[in-house]
């Protein structure tokens, strides 16, 4: 399935050793995490749907939240967040997982992070497909503004990559960083409008609009695919600039310190 969906895209690109390598590492990683190709996809799809079901029941029945298209509202937020948190958490272990390659062959270590993030992205992409099937059948208006959507997918990918490099570098000196990151990701999802309304977020936590890069991305995603509006361009630009700047900085940091990690493996 992974092969059937992604391979044609790869074949469109000119034959390029580096991208092939990154793709192969990602595909193999996905296969390993989800026990093969076909059954694995089932688990990758079930997990977010199950979480959505639980949260939906709790929030509509216990807290009686009334937001239009609440299931979709929450689903898209959850998907973006789950991708981000899965990809970054996995990056902490990337250098250790690929020790067998690093110690024996010379290559650019950034490729490992690209492929690791891409592997999480594969599950994310299938889940997005499920989201759009439901979204199109449940009926929020489809507009040309849907075309902005890939922009935010790229944005969250860059952000996840940047944080992945940062965490992996920190992990060299602070082996317990993953405990901290677990808490940060939990805090992060509640400091963004995923489970509650955006109005409430802007009223109570408006100052976080720019401090939590995830909040801005999810607000713009919903604007374009749920409400059929144009995105908030200033916010969109800010989030992109934030992700790119962070990526450049974290890349420098990683290049400077990554060899230490291998010595300490």
């Amino acid at each position: 399935m992974i092969n059937r969906v992604f391979k044609p895209i790869l074949e469109l690109l000119p034959e390029n050793n580096r991208w092939e390598r990154i793709w192969k590492l990602a595909q193999v990683d996905f296969q390993k995490r989800y026990y093969g190709n076909r059954l694995g996809l089932f688990w990758a799809l079930l997990n977010p749907l199950f979480q959505l079901g639980v949260y939906y029941i709790v929030f509509t029945n216990v807290f009686s939240v009334s937001i239009p298209y609440f299931a979709l509202y929450m689903f898209i937020g959850l998907l973006f967040w789950m991708f981000f948190s899965e990809a970054t958490t996995k990056s902490i272990q990337t250098l250790i997982n690929y020790r067998y390659l690093i110690e024996n062959i010379q290559f650019n270590k950034i490729d490992l992070f690209l492929s690791s993030t891409l592997s999480s992205f594969m599950g994310f992409a299938f889940n997005l497909a499920v989201f759009f099937v439901i979204a199109l059948s449940l009926g929020p208006p489809v507009t040309l503004n849907f075309l902005y959507f890939p922009l935010f997918v790229v944005n969250i990918f860059l952000l996840a990559l940047a944080f992945g490099l940062l965490l992996s570098t920190l992990n060299i000196y602070l082996k317990d960083i993953h405990h901290v990151w677990d808490m940060v990701t939990l805090l992060g999802i509640w400091l963004a409008p995923v489970f509650y309304s955006e109005d409430l977020f802007e009223k109570k936590l408006g100052f976080l609009m720019y401090a939590n890069p995830f909040a801005g991305i999810i607000i713009n995603v919903r604007k374009t695919v749920l409400y059929g509006q144009a995105p908030d361009f200033l916010l969109c630009f800010y989030n992109f600039a934030f992700a790119i700047l962070l990526l450049v900085l974290c890349n420098l940091l990683f290049r400077r310190f990554s060899h230490k990690a291998i010595e300490k493996l």
């Binding site: 034959e15 050793n17 092939e20 062959i105 290559f107």
Partner: peptide, 8 residues
Amino acid sequence: SILGLTFR
């Protein structure tokens, strides 16, 4: 692939 060969 890491040693620089293409899939082909």
